[in-house]
Amino acid sequence: MKKKIFDIIQISDKSNIVSRAFDLTLVIIIFTNIGVMFLETFSELYLYKALFKKIEFWTTMFFLMEYILRIWTADYLYPKTDKIKARLKFLISFDGIIDLLTIIPTLYLTGFVAFRMLRVVRIFHLFRLNAQYDSFNVITSVIIEKKNQIASSIFIIMILMLAGSLCMYSAEHEAQPEVFNNAFSGIWWAVSTVLTVGYGDIYPITALGKFMAIIIAFLGVGAVAIPTGIISAGFVEEYTKDQHILNYSNLDSKDILEIKVEKNDDFCNKKIMEIKDIIIYLIIRDELSILPTPSLTLKKNDIIIFKKFN
């Protein structure tokens, strides 16, 4: 019974009607809970406040029941650990923390109202697709792979914001002391300008301030485009890898050829883009598998998996 409950609440199996029914019920309850949270903010619907409170209470009780069942069946989620450690591991996991934070707001503790929006995160529990074709997994992979470049670009943007705030304070403080009161008072203006939002509630009025605002705005366009370009390039790389793997997996085994690169043959010390009449799918070098790129140079003792053109 415990294993069956785990399969229902933890694993979305298309062949399991009960599991799919549970997933559908969970989706409906999530959207009902969030919908009620929005409707409670309308003063015109004040007469239905008691009904909204009841709906929120019972939907949260469903979340609580699911949370308890997930703790109870955690030993199936972490089969290599004992029951107590498995449950503790679930409690401190991302899913466990999010599940808890979706229940806490019902207690109406001060400062916990913002956690209600974390109920939305629960919808992502339903996307249990194969990792190879999971779009969310691709996004995560790109961000992790490019995390250093993204962090560097964000650091550049932050420096530009601070510099813009300080420059604008120097130029506008005497003309607008109530607006640009200190160096940090221009942060809001710098954020809206560098990020190209431009609300217009704070703006320079001096000639020097306007000139610097033009320069900072131009720099902001370029700076904000850096992380966008990095992430876009990451998606292109990931898509290219997936296409190589897909093409390789769809090949008929009789079409696949394998050779070892020797010192004096035509492939040695040549770039992939220079090799004609064959399609290279994989390169094995020093027991490492390498996906081919146009600029990659083949070396002696490389093993290449390829197909000849018909």
Rank of each mutant, 00 (worst) to 15 (best):
G164A: 12
F136P: 00
R128V: 03
F127D: 02
R116W: 08
K147P: 09
V121E: 02
Y108V: 07
L118I: 08
F155L: 12
I157L: 03
A131Q: 05
V121N: 00
F136A: 03
F127C: 00
D134Q: 11
Q149K: 12
N137P: 02
A163N: 15
I139V: 05
F124I: 05
L126W: 01
V138W: 01
S165A: 13
N130I: 03
M161K: 06
R128W: 01
Y108D: 15
E145P: 05
A114T: 09
Q149M: 01
R116K: 14
A131W: 09
H125I: 02
I144K: 15
G111Y: 14
I143A: 05
Q132P: 02
S165H: 10
I143N: 04
F127I: 07
F124H: 03
A131Y: 10
G164W: 12
L129K: 04
Y133F: 14
Q132I: 09
I123F: 10
L109P: 06
F136C: 00
G111I: 10
F155N: 14
Q132R: 12
M117L: 14
E145R: 05
L129E: 07
L109R: 08
N130D: 14
S165C: 08
N137Y: 12
G111Q: 09
F115Q: 02
L166I: 09
F127R: 01
N130F: 03
I144T: 13
L118P: 02
F112Q: 05
R119F: 04
M158Y: 14
A151I: 04
R128N: 05
H125E: 15
S165M: 14
L160R: 14
G111H: 08
N148Y: 13
N148M: 08
T110N: 10
I156L: 11
N137F: 07
I150R: 04
